[in-house]
């Protein structure tokens, strides 16, 4: 039974028509055409699907689209300002914080969301925060370096 749902994604309204069991991640990807949010496990562990929901990083694979009615959703597609990359995106590029790039949207959203809430995280807190997502390529070293560099710039 499909129902109408209104999602606000990156400041834009999307009126979609989905089954109640459709996850937020699938709705973003299939119904809003925003495929930057990736699915690495669909059981809440890898964090590839991380988006910001009213500013908080959440796993989009564990939410249903209808739960997100009228909430502010931010995805990786909304990070850059036109051609101008977000400092976090720039730092990942400069520090080689990505290889295959599959985990990258999730890490970007996680780190941006966390630093917007708490800009002065120390090294241990950053590491702790980053350990909630998985990356199979980089060994995390350059991700941590990138987040540190972006943190300085975002403050």
């Amino acid at each position: 039974m499909k129902t109408p749902v209104k999602l606000r994604v990156n400041g834009q309204a999307h009126e979609i028509f989905v089954e109640p069991r459709k996850t937020l991640a699938d709705a973003l990807r299939d119904d809003c055409g925003l495929t930057g949010t990736h699915l690495g496990c669909e059981h809440g562990v890898c964090g590839a699907c991380t988006v910001l929901l009213d500013g908080d990083p959440v796993r989009a694979c564990l939410m249903f689209a209808i739960q997100c009615q009228d909430m502010e959703i931010r995805t990786v597609e909304g990070l850059a300002d036109g051609e101008e990359l977000h400092p976090m995106q720039r730092a990942f590029w400069e520090k080689h914080g990505l290889q295959c790039g599959f985990c990258t949207p999730g890490f970007l959203m996680l780190a941006v969301g966390a630093l917007e809430r708490k800009p002065d995280m120390d090294e241990e807190e950053l590491k702790e925060m980053l350990s909630s997502n998985l990356c199979r390529c980089t060994g995390y070293q350059n991700i941590l370096a990138a987040v540190r560099a972006a943190q300085a710039e975002m403050q």
Binding site: G36, L79, A80, L98, F102, L108
Partner: peptide
């Protein structure tokens, strides 16, 4: 390679 991967414009199989 990085720019599209950073902006969500990657084209993986699922996309």
């Amino acid at each position: 390679e990085d720019r599209p991967l950073l902006t969500g414009e990657g084209r993986y199989a699922g996309d």
